[in-house]
Amino acid sequence: MRSDMFNVTQVGSWPRSRELLRALRDKQRGLMTRADFERIADQEVRRCVQHQVDAGVDVVVDGEHRRDNFYSFVTDKLDGTRLMSLAEMLDTVDDKAAFEEMLSTLDVPASAIRNPTCTGKLARREPLAVAELEFVQQLTDRPVKVTLPGPYLLTRSMWVGAFSRSGYADKTELGDDVVRILRDELVELRDRGAAFVQFDEPVLTEIVLSEDDHKRTFM
């Protein structure tokens, strides 16, 4: 750390450019190879890191440019998962009208938010964020923060009974595997020199603050 007090960092994600969004869409539709997508994302991460260095940020992030969203991206890395739009998930919801009303009340665009649905036994095909870390380390000597979805968020969003029961008896059993995968990832990120690993658990507030937990749920 350059200073030992009031370090400045970010929570993780950065606005995406139009070019990146186009590339992400093409990759998700199978119209762009992963290698081509990564090359475009590399450029975005370079610019994002440069902005942070220029601004004097102490601990930098990659901006999550390679991620669809901060937790759905695990479908790129884990066997036993599938990226699903909320619209697709609507088919599995019992009370469709209530779910649609929740999305509209909360200003959630069903087409823009995708979920990492568990569709079988999980296995780490490749590390979740090690490649992101190593790319940033090539760009700067500044310490790097890596963000990962927390185990509660990930288990809760991944579990869609109709699909997930082919891999796990229940949500708790899935949760055990999620924790194991995240712990392995944390150790690997530490060993590769990550300065800071942040776990994101935004829905914890929903549990304690929402009056109607059922209606609020979309993550």
């Binding site: 994600s13 950065w14 969203n69």
Partner: peptide, 28 residues
């Protein structure tokens, strides 16, 4: 004490909550 934004500037790629120029100004 560390200083950071309240959250990311674009947690959902297709629904980013801000633009780069504003994000840079906030970092500064």
């Amino acid at each position: 004490i560390w200083l950071n934004p309240d959250c990311g500037f674009g947690c959902f790629a297709s629904r980013c909550v801000n633009e780069e120029a504003h994000a840079v100004a906030k970092l500064r």
